[in-house]
Amino acid sequence: MRYLPALIVDAVLVLIFAVIGRASHQEDPAGFLLTAWPFLVALLVGHALAALMGSGPRRPWSLLWGVTVWVVTVAGGMLLRLVAGDTAQIPFIIVATIVLGVFLVGWRALAGLLRRRRKSEDADAATSAPVESEAAAEPEASAD
């Protein structure tokens, strides 16, 4: 399952978001699942939607996949909070949108940069492979 690693990374980041949020409001960080569950459910929906998009992203580590997951996670998470009787005040929506965007899209951008850098280094290494000189190809003369 090529989707699982990206889903796990995203879920861990959503959990970190919930822990940080609770700690920043002096709430018990141990109750982070109360904060995280709507976003985790929306995250699953976002991954499913990204996977089902016909002309959309094909790789779960692509930026387009990340943007799809991010938008669905924020919007769906906020809606689920409201349906469950919790609040979704404007400052929370803004902070959640920014933090989850940095988390869910950011790691994909970083991974893409690292992949491009590695490909560039591999291409540079292949084109600058040492060429044997004629002097190196001749055996050394022995001093008898």
Rank of each mutant, 00 (worst) to 15 (best):
W37M: 05
T35F: 10
A51S: 15
R81P: 11
I90W: 14
D10N: 05
T35E: 08
A51L: 11
S24I: 00
T68N: 07
M78V: 11
I94L: 07
L4A: 14
G76N: 13
G66C: 04
S55I: 13
A42K: 00
P57K: 06
G31P: 12
L33N: 04
F17K: 01
L33T: 07
V19S: 03
H47N: 14
L82H: 06
S55H: 15
A88T: 02
V74E: 07
L44A: 15
G85L: 04
L80D: 08
P29A: 00
W65K: 00
V41N: 15
F32Y: 13
F17I: 01
V71W: 10
A11F: 08
R22S: 09
L4Y: 09
Y3S: 08
E27V: 06
I93W: 10
L34C: 02
L33R: 03
L52I: 01
V72K: 12
T68L: 05
I94Y: 10
L15Q: 01
Y3L: 07
A42G: 10
I98L: 12
I94C: 05
F92I: 05
A18W: 01
V67Q: 05
L40G: 01
G77H: 00
S55M: 11
V19I: 03
I98A: 07
L64H: 10
V95E: 09
L49S: 13
V9I: 14
S55N: 15
P38A: 05
W70N: 10
A50T: 01
G21F: 04
A88W: 03
I93A: 13
P5Q: 06
L82F: 06
G21T: 05
A75R: 03
T97F: 00
A96T: 15
G77Y: 00
L100G: 06
L33Q: 06
V95C: 05
D86C: 04
G66N: 09
R81G: 03
I90E: 12
Q26Y: 06
P38Q: 12
A88Y: 01
T68S: 09
M78H: 12
G54D: 15
L64Y: 07
V99T: 11
I94K: 14
L43A: 12
I16A: 02
A36H: 12
V83P: 10
A18C: 01
F32W: 07
E27T: 04
A6Q: 01
F32H: 00
I20V: 09
L43D: 15
V45K: 15
I93H: 13
E27L: 11
S24T: 11
G21A: 04
P57V: 09
P91V: 09
I8T: 13
G54S: 14
L100R: 06
L82T: 10
V83T: 12
V83N: 11
G56F: 12
I94R: 13
G77Q: 02
P29E: 00
W37Y: 14
L13A: 02
V71S: 13
P60Y: 10
